[in-house]
């Protein structure tokens, strides 16, 4: 009996509730956007509330963007470290004579490897990591541009809310 009720209340019903809430939020957002374009000059209290809600939405978007940028930075850091390590290895391999013994650690086993092969391998890895770094740079730049435009819209929204509040205070 207990199991059944748990299933009934916390399971699909709870999930459905959450889903419905999300849907409502989305619809509300769309309506807010619509109403704001329709009557941007009207200074009613409902308009103010709409603007505040929109500001909240925009702030959420901004924090999401910032999180993404932070994640990208972390990835960049990881790749930079790997690039440095690979470059050190390459320098070391370049210093070796042709008949030097090179081993590669695969799992718990050391496998003997051709020097030329190892060299090519490390070079390929450096190439890949450099390309990946370039790609990450482009995404970070893109995200930062988006963040700046979001910040601008937020500042504009805040100004509008302030002016709306001032208008309401006078009336």
């Amino acid at each position: 009996m207990r199991e059944w009720s748990e299933y009934d209340w916390a399971g699909p019903l709870g999930l459905r509730k959450r889903k419905r809430k999300k849907k409502e939020e989305k619809q509300e957002g769309a309506q807010v956007a619509l109403r704001n374009t329709n009557s941007s000059n009207a200074m009613s209290s409902s308009n103010l509330r709409d603007a505040q809600r929109e500001l909240e939405n925009k702030a959420n978007d901004l924090s999401k963007l910032q999180k993404e940028i932070a994640k990208n930075h972390q990835m960049r850091k990881k790749y930079t470290v790997q690039l440095g390590e690979n470059e050190l290895v390459l320098k070391e391999l370049d210093l070796l004579k042709d008949d030097a013994n090179v081993y590669k650690l695969i799992g718990p086993v050391l496998v003997k490897q051709d020097l030329a092969e190892a060299n090519a391998n490390v070079r390929k890895r450096i190439e890949y990591i450099s390309a990946e770094l370039k790609r990450l740079d482009a995404t970070v730049q893109d995200l930062e541009e988006k963040q700046n435009s979001k910040k601008d819209t937020i500042v504009k929204l805040q100004q509008r809310i302030q002016s709306l509040q001032a208008g309401k205070g006078k009336a």
Binding site: L88, E92, L105
Partner: peptide, 10 residues
């Protein structure tokens, strides 16, 4: 151990 899994005999 010179890093990234490579070992060199010296």
């Amino acid at each position: 151990d010179v890093g990234t899994g490579y070992f060199i005999q010296k």
